[in-house]
Computed example of a mutant assay.
Amino acid sequence: MNWIKRIILFLLVAYAILCAGLYAFQESVIFRPRQLPADYEFGVGEEMTLHTPDGVPLNVLAFQKPGAEGAILFLHGNRGSNRRSLRQTEGLVDAAYDLYLFDYRGYGKSGGAIVSEEQLFADAQIVYDSLRARYAEENIIVVGYSLGTGMASYLAANNHPRHCVLAAPYASITAMKNLWLWMVPDFILKYPLNTRENVARANCPVTVLHGQQDELIPFAMAEEIKEAAPERVELIPLPSSGHRGVILDPLFTETVLRLIK
């Protein structure tokens, strides 16, 4: 019987170490920033720097046109930066609305590092507020892809934009954790990023595009988001698209452009 007790003790210790490690290092697990040199030049658009209350510079790449009455704010996915966002949103550069690409802390040319969900949301709000000072809020479209859908849905729930577009969204990071680490308690997670809950509270229509071949975020999560507010959410399935294919599908660009008209 002693060997059984030793095995149980070993498993309990291993479980405690796993939980403690995930809590302490979850930023490294969840966020995979792609940084750019401080002297990197995009060659297009106009760079803007916004500063957080604690002095961290946030890099925004803007494409402004004379007479534009509205703006598209794009929040990119993980392992991304404004350099990758350029390729993903090239079909929106010449839209009637101005286009703004935003790098989170530690991504691209933005400084600092992500340390809390509240900070992540607050930074997104700073960028949104800078647009609200320039454009009528009913002419602001918020677009999020993958990781960025958590912040985009937060902005939709706490402001009044014209529309919110979510490409390849997750129901929550908690739900994503439970796909692989269901044995780890939810309270350990510092970044629940509850997209489903945000959509349920959204102050604008929401359009969800999701690939039915998505190998990272199950299509069922898009359906769950739709169920959170059936009357407010338009779900557009992309039958042949995987996770990365959603943002490159022509229907993504067509959908955003349709919302401007």
Rank of each mutant, 00 (worst) to 15 (best):
D103W: 08
S116C: 00
A96D: 15
A124I: 06
A96G: 15
S116P: 09
V115D: 05
D103L: 07
A122W: 00
G106T: 06
I140G: 05
L131R: 03
D94S: 15
Y145E: 13
Q119L: 03
V127S: 04
R134N: 02
A113I: 00
D129A: 12
S110W: 10
D129N: 15
A136V: 06
A96V: 12
S146T: 07
R134F: 02
L131V: 04
E118M: 02
I114F: 05
A113M: 03
S116L: 04
L101M: 04
Y145Q: 13
D98N: 13
V127G: 01
G106P: 04
V93S: 01
V127A: 11
I126Q: 10
K109N: 10
V93P: 03
A95F: 02
D103R: 10
D129H: 13
R132C: 02
L120A: 08
V127T: 07
I141V: 15
D94W: 03
Y107H: 12
Y107L: 08
D103C: 10
D98E: 04
E117M: 06
V143F: 09
N139V: 12
Q119K: 13
D129K: 05
L101D: 05
V142S: 08
G111F: 01
G144K: 11
L99K: 07
V115L: 08
A136Q: 14
R132L: 09
S116I: 06
Y107G: 06
G112E: 05
A122L: 07
A122M: 00
R105S: 11
Y104M: 09
I126M: 05
A124L: 06
A133D: 10
L120Q: 12
D94R: 14
A96T: 13
R134A: 03
R105A: 14
S146A: 13
E138V: 02
G144P: 03
Q125P: 00
Q125S: 14
S130K: 05
V142C: 11
S130P: 05
D98G: 11
E138H: 15
G111M: 07
G108Q: 13
A96K: 14
I140Y: 03
D123F: 05
E117N: 06
L99I: 04
V115F: 01
V93M: 14
G108L: 10
I114R: 01
Q119S: 06
G108W: 08
D98A: 13
S116H: 00
A113N: 09
G111H: 05
R132W: 01
A124E: 02
D94A: 15
I141K: 10
Y135D: 04
A113Q: 09
L120R: 09
Q119Y: 11
V142Q: 07
Q125N: 09
I126N: 04
Y97N: 09
V142G: 08
L120P: 00
D123M: 11
I141T: 13
S110A: 13
Y97T: 06
S110D: 08
A95R: 03
Y107I: 09
S110H: 10
Y128S: 01
A124Y: 05
Q125E: 14
A96P: 02
L131D: 04
E138Q: 15
K109H: 11
